[in-house]
Amino acid sequence: MRVLLNLAYLVCCGWITFTGYWWPGRAVGFVSGPSEGEPFYCNQLMSSGGEDDLMVAIFVVFALPFAVRVIAMWFSRPGRAELALWGIAAALACFGLFLASLDCAAIFYTAFRLPAPELAAALIALPLSGLLLWLLRRSGTARRHR
C-alpha cells in the first residue's frame, strides 16, 4: 500500500511540475471568464494580461517535493521538513494562481469550462498530493505503533 501511495504522490507532483514547464509556452492561455461568443484570452491584452500564463510556471517548485520523495521513498516516511516543503510549494503555486486571477485570468473557468485538461489535472493534483503525503505520513505512524 505504501508503494502505491508513494507512486501516486510522485505522479501528482510530477504532473504539477510538468504543467509548470509546459503551460507558459504552449497552452492557449487563460480566458477572462464567461462571455458571449468567443472567449477572450488574457494573453491578447497589451498591458499585463500576457503575464498571467507565467504565473503557472511557479508550479515547477513541485520538482523539489518530487525529488525529496524520490530520495526518501524507500528509507523513511515523510517528516516534518518534507511536509513543510510541500506546504511552501503549494503556497507558492496558489499565490501564483491568485496573482493571475487578480489581473485577468479566470482559473477554474479556464481549466474546467474552456477546457484546459492539463491545467485541470494540475489543479486536482495539487490538493490530492497533499492528501497522499498526509496518508503516507499516517501509514508510517501506524506501522511504528504496532
Rank of each mutant, 00 (worst) to 15 (best):
S47C: 08
S47V: 13
S48Q: 14
S48D: 15
G49Y: 05
G49C: 05
G50K: 14
G50L: 12
G50I: 10
G50N: 13
E51N: 11
E51Q: 10
E51D: 08
D52R: 01
D52Q: 12
D53F: 04
L54V: 04
M55V: 01
V56M: 04
A57G: 15
I58R: 06
V60W: 08
V60E: 05
V61A: 10
V61P: 03
V61G: 00
A63W: 10
L64K: 07
L64P: 04
P65E: 11
P65M: 13
F66P: 01
A67W: 07
V68H: 05
R69N: 06
R69V: 01
M73H: 11
M73P: 03
W74T: 14
G79N: 07
G79H: 02
R80E: 09
R80Y: 13
A81C: 07
A81L: 15
A81D: 09
E82F: 02
A84C: 11
A84V: 15
A84M: 14
A84I: 14
L85T: 08
L85I: 14
W86V: 06
W86F: 14
W86I: 08
G87K: 11
I88R: 06
I88F: 12
I88V: 15
I88S: 07
A91D: 09
A91M: 14
L92T: 03
L92E: 08
C94L: 14
C94V: 11
F95Q: 09
F95R: 05
G96D: 00
L97K: 00
L97E: 00
L97F: 09
F98A: 09
F98C: 04
L99F: 13
L99S: 06
A100H: 03
A100W: 02
S101Y: 03
S101Q: 02
D103Q: 12
C104P: 02
C104A: 04
C104D: 01
C104V: 04
A105W: 01
A106E: 08
A106M: 09
I107K: 05
F108G: 08
F108T: 13
Y109L: 08
Y109S: 12
T110Y: 07
T110V: 03
T110F: 02
T110G: 10
A111T: 04
A111P: 11
R113K: 14
L114M: 15
L114P: 07
L114Y: 13
L114G: 12
L114E: 14
P115F: 00
P115R: 12
A116M: 09
P117S: 08
P117H: 09
E118C: 01
E118I: 11
L119P: 03
L119Q: 01
L119G: 03
L119K: 04
L119N: 02
A120H: 10
A120C: 08
A120S: 08
A120N: 05
A121T: 06
A121V: 10
L123D: 00
I124V: 15
A125K: 05
A125P: 01
L126T: 00
P127V: 01
S129R: 01
G130I: 07
G130P: 10
L131Q: 07
L132M: 09
W134I: 10
L135G: 07
L136I: 03
R137W: 09
R137E: 00
R137D: 00
R138C: 02
